[in-house]
Design a protein around this nucleic acid. Sequence first.
DNA 1: CGCTGTGAACGCGTTCACAGCC
DNA 2: GGCTGTGAACGCGTTCACAGCG
Lengths: 229, 229
Amino acid sequence: MLKNSHGKPGQHRERHTMKSEHIPKATIGRLAVYIQVLENLLRDGTEVISSEKLASACSVNSSQIRKDLAYFGEFGVRGVGYYVQELITSIKHSLGIDRVWNCALIGVGNLGTALLRHHDFEQRGFVIKAAFDCDPDKIGKELEGMEIVCPTHLKNQAKERGIELGIITTPPDRAQRAANHLVDAGIKGIVNYAPARINVPPHIPVEYVDFFDHLYSLAFQVTLGNFEG
Amino acid sequence: MLKNSHGKPGQHRERHTMKSEHIPKATIGRLAVYIQVLENLLRDGTEVISSEKLASACSVNSSQIRKDLAYFGEFGVRGVGYYVQELITSIKHSLGIDRVWNCALIGVGNLGTALLRHHDFEQRGFVIKAAFDCDPDKIGKELEGMEIVCPTHLKNQAKERGIELGIITTPPDRAQRAANHLVDAGIKGIVNYAPARINVPPHIPVEYVDFFDHLYSLAFQVTLGNFEG
DNA sequence: CGCTGTGAACGCGTTCACAGCC
DNA sequence: GGCTGTGAACGCGTTCACAGCG
């Protein structure tokens, strides 16, 4: 009765419909990059761009861009290129980020607080609608106009507030319990910032974020470079 | 005159020496995951683990783990498995994160401030030694015991304080300028949190971090799931 | 003519299967 | 017997090359 909320009852289907079933994960990652670069181009007043130019701005192969986009539709104009604004809109629609996603955050520690404070999430369409923590000292307190609630209330709140995604920012040993609460509440997907793996039913996608992965990767590359240089 | 370096005439070879020249980027990413899981295992008192068990904890194939580790050496014991503590140490050494990396941060806005405040970086061996911003209102102010300095001083400070890595947390339109400062200061690698691509000489590795990539990916997967379900 | 969209070729990372060692 | 380390096989994403359309 409330599940079917992913946007206007779609009888009208435009040209921007999925073409293929399986899309490489790497493609999704690159689409995010394309958006980033395209938005900066738009800010600078560029209206049209070729796959060649966009490719070099993104440091990828131009066929790559055309292939990536082709998974979702035909967004370009032969002999011309892509209209920047239109392409941004199309990519966002393809990714499903042309709408608002209501989120629940579990774990109001350092990181959780930082995420609540900085409103970049909202700007990108991910609105944190409720904050949870099992620490009795925190429960009842307010943060950014949001009351911190015990995770046992997650199920009610999720239904009440139309929450679809969960954000885990607990310490590692609490991550699994947080995940269980989210699953139990019928959440559709989880972003896990806690440095621990979690187990959830296979139909629920989980994205792991570790802020240090990239630093590790960088350290490795620099170390390697030193051997060669 | 310096290219031919991938087969250094290694007279003394320990067991923890690189075996192969090229290592897949995906492997590096997984090593970070292995560390995460192994450290949690260690906390729970596990001393030895097989590739099979570790694999299922990391949701990867067990051959994958053995292959990944084999790039760097032979860390396991046949018929037994891997000693957890020893493996953590070995992986960290392989990645070059068994030491301290001094970093400079450019852009003391929302994100930059958050990174300076939370000392998770230091815990993992990445110490922010200096903070820069070109905003006159911010220059001279202190934050977490660190004076905010004009980026024109980067070069001096970098030498003085032994800074090797740069962290960009500026707005997108300032990212390139920040990168130029870092390159000019002789920095060896850059992590770019700004939502913009940057151009640097090819020998300087750049890692891009966008906190929303994973949210986009999640949104996409959930959207897709809804169509299928 | 220019640039997109795409089947075919390629290369690389992943998985398999087993030899090698404890 | 058990589990690691690894060459061989596989599969998939990337790149090439060109047909197709504006």
